[in-house]
Each structure stands twice: as C-alpha cells, then as structure tokens.
Design a protein around this nucleic acid. Structure first.
Length: 216
DNA sequence: ATCCCGAGGG
DNA sequence: CCCTCTGGAT
C-alpha cells in the first residue's frame, strides 16, 4: 500500500466496518431540543453519557429552556449537576450560555460553528455535536476522547491535537458522514476499542489495525 | 501545561 | 490505588 494512499483507503475500510456494525448511529444523550442537547453535551465533558442522563431530567423539568436557566442561581444549578464533575465551571458556563442565547440570539441556539463557539463552555467538539444533532449540519467533525483514540490507533491520524485530528479526518471521510462517524466511533469506543483494555479479539477491524493487541 | 471534579471500573 | 469518562478556559 502506497503511503500516500493509506489513510483514504484505511478510512474507507473503517467507515464500511462501522456502518455495518452500527446501521443506525445516534447520540446516547437524552435531549428534546437544541438547547437541551447543548446543555447535555456541555455536561458530558469528562463524564459518561449515562451519568448525564441521570441529572438532565431534573434539570430540564426545573429549567426547560435558556430563558429559564438564565434566571437560576448558580448554587441551585451546581447542586443539580454536581455528580457530573467539574460542576462549578459547568454551572458558571451554562448560566453564561443561557444568558447569551437569550440576550444575543433571541432564545434560539445558533446554527453555525462560529456563533456556537462564542458561548462560554462551548468549543469545537461541543459545537460540532450540537450542530449535527440539532440541525443536521456537518460543518466539522466532533473530536472527543473516543474519536481521538480510535483514529490514532487505526492510523487515520498521527496528530495529538484535537484540531489537527479533526482536519485529518475531514480529509478522508465524506462530509455527509461526519456526524455519523462521530456517533459510531463513540459507540465503538465504549463497546470494543476502549481506552484501557480494548477487546481486539472481538474486533472486526483487528486485521487492519496497526495497534491491535497482541501485535502480529 | 495546568486546573477543574465526581463516579465507576479494574 | 490508578485510570477513564463524547473538554474547555486560563
């Protein structure tokens, strides 16, 4: 295999395998609106989606939309989201985001990457997740801990910086697949290609994985 | 580079 | 005990 053609060819194989394994990719975060998806995604930083889904029902019942949360006290919000970790900074950022969505965007979560990243606590990963999940827009490819680890292991990137990883992935995956690639890699990362002890023996991609254990 | 921070698994 | 979980701001 030519070195210059390795990544695109590898990406095509990875995509086919993940499509076969996960025919219907979707987020595992529970949210009914764009705003709620934004809140859930912010809470999901360094936290399992299962844990996030444990607190969001209470959060969304008490403060359904941005105008509601904008009036909440930080102490009350901290108490509700405490178990998701980083609860002080998450509460502060969510209150700031709620006020900005209410005051600057008329209560509607903006539908562009440039506008989303102006919200406190929202950078490219969260913005990409919200853009695709709420609006079906593939402006970028959300790179989280799973996407980063799996892309590196499978040889789709040599980069460690998430922005560079995103650029490499955008080059080798079709644009209309970016959102689904994220969902599929997250799913795959939970079930098979885990950080600590990957299940290489049960992995259908092991034969094309440069980092399978044990190595050939 | 460092800090933020709780909860579950091995 | 240590590592990891759909990161972001300083």
């Amino acid at each position: 295999m030519d070195k210059n053609n390795f990544r695109p060819a590898q990406a095509a194989r990875v995509l086919a395998a993940l499509q076969a394994r996960y025919p219907q990719p979707h987020t595992h975060l529970h949210a009914d609106t764009a705003w709620q998806l934004l809140v859930a995604t912010v809470l999901a930083a360094q936290c399992t989606d299962a844990r996030v889904n444990l607190v969001t029902p209470h959060l969304f019942r008490r403060w359904p939309g941005p105008a509601d949360l904008a009036e909440a006290s930080q102490e009350d919000l901290e108490e509700v989201i405490r178990s998701t970790g980083f609860f002080r900074s998450k509460a502060k950022n969510l209150l700031g985001a709620a006020r900005r969505v209410r005051d600057v965007y008329g209560g509607t979560v903006p539908a562009s990457l440039a506008e989303l990243v102006t919200l406190p606590g929202v950078a490219r990963k969260t913005a990409n997740v919200v853009l695709f999940g709420a609006y079906g827009i593939n402006e970028g490819l959300a790179v989280d801990t799973h996407v980063k680890r799996i892309s590196f292991r499978l040889g789709l990137t040599d980069a460690l910086d998430p922005v560079a990883v995103e650029r490499d992935l955008m080059e080798v995956f079709p644009k209309d697949e970016w959102g689904d690639v994220n969902h599929r890699m997250v799913w795959f990362g939970r079930e098979v290609c885990m950080a600590r002890k990957p299940r290489c023996a049960a992995c259908e991609l092991a034969d094309i994985c440069p980092r399978r254990e044990p190595p050939i």
